[in-house]
C-alpha cells in the first residue's frame, strides 16, 4: 500500500476531505446498462458525493476520451449515504458499450470516480484490492469528469466506498460468488494482474459458456468463519455475520464457492499474537458449526454452495520449516503454527469432503499440496515463492501465481453450466 498519510492525512478522524477517488474495477460480465452500490456501513457520519462518473480506463488514472458517463442517484448527481447504510445508483446507460459480447471491451477496466463533499468521516474500504486506484489531494474538489489523470496525484491498493457493480443481463445468467479469506482475496497474486484463483476460473467459465456467467469476489484478507472477531477491523466481520449483506445481497446469485477456516484455526494469530483482530483460536467443531449455519442459510435462498478444502499452512511462521527470522523477526506471531493448525485443518477438510455437507467439493488442498511425505504437508515447492514481492520470502500460506493458477484450473466447471 502506498503511504496514504498524504491523500488522507486525517484518515483516523475526519476521513477524506473534498477530494475525488477514481476506483479501477474489472467487470466480469459486460453490458450497456449498469448500476453501482456504495457503502458507508463502517462510517460514523453521513457521506456525500457531489458527482459520480463511470468511464473506460485507458491506463493508470487516465480514461478514454468520450467515455465519461454521469451516474445519478434518485435522478440527482449528488447523493448522501447515511452512516451504516449502502446506496444503489440509478441505472446508467453506457453509450460506448455495444453489448456484453463487444470484443473491444472484453477484459477492460472501468474507472469509477466520485467526489467527496466535506469530510467523509470514517472510511469503509476493502484493503487488499491488489489493484491500483487513484486519489486526488485533500481539498482539490471534484475531478470526476477529468479524462486525464493529472489531478489524481496519489495511488492506493484498496477500494474505498465502492462495493458492487451490477449489469443488466439475461435471467438465466449463472452468478457465482467466490467467498472467503486472503487466499481468495488474492494475497500474493500479481499486482494489477488479475491472477486470483477466481480470475483463472472466470477465464475458463467464459471460454466454455460465453457471457452467460459472472463470478465476483467477496473475500477479505484475515477473514474468519465465526466469531469472536473485531467487526470493525480491516479483516471484516466473520462470515456468519457478513453473509446476508456481502453474499446474499448480490444480484442474481446462484452459486457460492467458499474457502475459509485457516484464520479461525489461528494461522498467524496464535497465543503469542496481538489479539487485535482475532482474539480466540477456534476448535474445528465450532468452525464446522459455522459452515453448517452458512450452508443452511444459502440453501434457504436457493443458492448452491461448494466447499473448498483448506490449503496447507503447515510451515507458516515456523523457523524449522524455513521462516526467515532474520528479515521478519517481528512477524513471527507464534512459535509454531504447524502441528496444531494442521490437525484442525485435516478435520475441516474431512468435513468438507464428506458428501452431503456441501453441494459439491472444490479440492484446493489436493491441487496445491505436495504429496511427497518429505514435504511435511506443505504446498508444492513451486507454489511457495511469493510472486508479487519477489525479494521477500514466502509465508507457507498464500500460493503464488502458479499455485493460484493451479487452484483455478482445479475447479470442475460442469456444475456452473447455464441451463
Amino acid at each position: 500500500q502506498p503511504d496514504l498519510a498524504f491523500p488522507f492525512p486525517n484518515a483516523n478522524t475526519s476521513g477524506a476531505n473534498d477530494q475525488t477517488i477514481r476506483s479501477i474495477v474489472k467487470p466480469d460480465l459486460w453490458g450497456n446498462t449498469m448500476r453501482l452500490r456504495f457503502s458507508n456501513v463502517f462510517g460514523n457520519q453521513a457521506l456525500t458525493f457531489d458527482s459520480t462518473t463511470i468511464a473506460l480506463q485507458e491506463y493508470a488514472g487516465n480514461v478514454v476520451h468520450g467515455t465519461v458517463t454521469p451516474v445519478t442517484f434518485g435522478r440527482s448527481l449528488s447523493v448522501t449515504i447515511p452512516a451504516g447504510q449502502e446506496m444503489w445508483s440509478d441505472p446508467v446507460r453506457l453509450a460506448w458499450v455495444r453489448s456484453a459480447d463487444d470484443p473491444l471491451i472484453q477484459g477492460r477496466n472501468l474507472a469509477i470516480s466520485y467526489s467527496i463533499r466535506g469530510d467523509s468521516g470514517h472510511m469503509t474500504y476493502h484493503s487488499g484490492a491488489n489493484t491500483t486506484s487513484y486519489i486526488t489531494g485533500p481539498g482539490t474538489g471534484d475531478h470526476t469528469n477529468d479524462a486525464d489523470g493529472f489531478a489524481y496525484e496519489y495511488t492506493t491498493s484498496s477500494w474505498f466506498f465502492l462495493t458492487t457493480l451490477d449489469v443488466m443481463a439475461s435471467t438465466d445468467t449463472v452468478v457465482i460468488c467466490a467467498f472467503g479469506d486472503s487466499i481468495t482475496d488474492g494475497t500474493h497474486t500479481t499486482f494489477n494482474g488479475n491472477d486470483r484463483w477466481a480470475n483463472v476460473l472466470s477465464r475458463r467459465l467464459h471460454d466454455a459458456y460465453g457471457n452467460k456467467v459472472s463470478i465476483v469476489n467477496e473475500a477479505i484478507g484475515g477473514n474468519r468463519v465465526i466469531n469472536p472477531v473485531v467487526a470493525n477491523a480491516a479483516s471484516g466481520p466473520a462470515a456468519v455475520d457478513r453473509l446476508d449483506r456481502d453474499v446474499l445481497g448480490l444480484s442474481g446469485l446462484t452459486d457460492v464457492i467458499w474457502l475459509e477456516g485457516i484464520n479461525d484455526l489461528g494461522a498467524g494469530y496464535g497465543a503469542a499474537a496481538n489479539p487485535v483482530e482475532n482474539p480466540v483460536v477456534h476448535t474445528p467443531q465450532a468452525i464446522i458449526a459455522g459452515y453448517q449455519d452458512v450452508v443452511a442459510r444459502l440453501h434457504r435462498h436457493g443458492v448452491k454452495v461448494y466447499g473448498a478444502t483448506v490449503v496447507s499452512a503447515l510451515g507458516l511462521n515456523n523457523p524449522a520449516q524455513g521462516w526467515d527470522l532474520i528479515h521478519f523477526p517481528s512477524f513471527l506471531a507464534t512459535v509454531d503454527n504447524g502441528a496444531a493448525v494442521e490437525a484442525g485443518r485435516l478435520i475441516l477438510n474431512q468435513f468438507i469432503r464428506t458428501p452431503g455437507n456441501f453441494d459439491g467439493v472444490v479440492d484446493f488442498d489436493a491441487a496445491t499440496r505436495d504429496p511427497d511425505p518429505a514435504a511435511l504437508g506443505n504446498m508444492k515447492a513451486k507454489y511457495l515463492p511469493n510472486s508479487q514481492f519477489t525479494q521477500l520470502p514466502w509465508d507457507y500460506l498464500h500460493p503464488n501465481h502458479a499455485g493460484y493458477n493451479a487452484m483455478g484450473l482445479a475447479v470442475d466447471i460442469a456444475p456452473f453450466a447455464p441451463a
Binding site: D3, L4, F8, A11, N12, G15, V25, K26, P27, D28, L29, W30, G31, M34, R35, S39, V41, F42, L110, H122, M123, T124, Y125, H126, S127, A129, S158, F160, L162, T163, T164, L165, D166, V167, M168, A169, S170, T171, V175, C177, S214, V216, N217, E218, A219, I220, N223, A231, A233, A234, S235, G236, R242, D246, L250, S251, G252, L253, S330, F331
Partner: peptide, 21 residues
Amino acid sequence: PQHWVASWATSPAAYFVYVAP
C-alpha cells in the same frame, strides 16, 4: 428477459491507517 446481475464486487471493511514496517 433480463435482470440485474453482479459483475464486480468487493467486501467492505473498516479502514485503518497502514503503518510501514
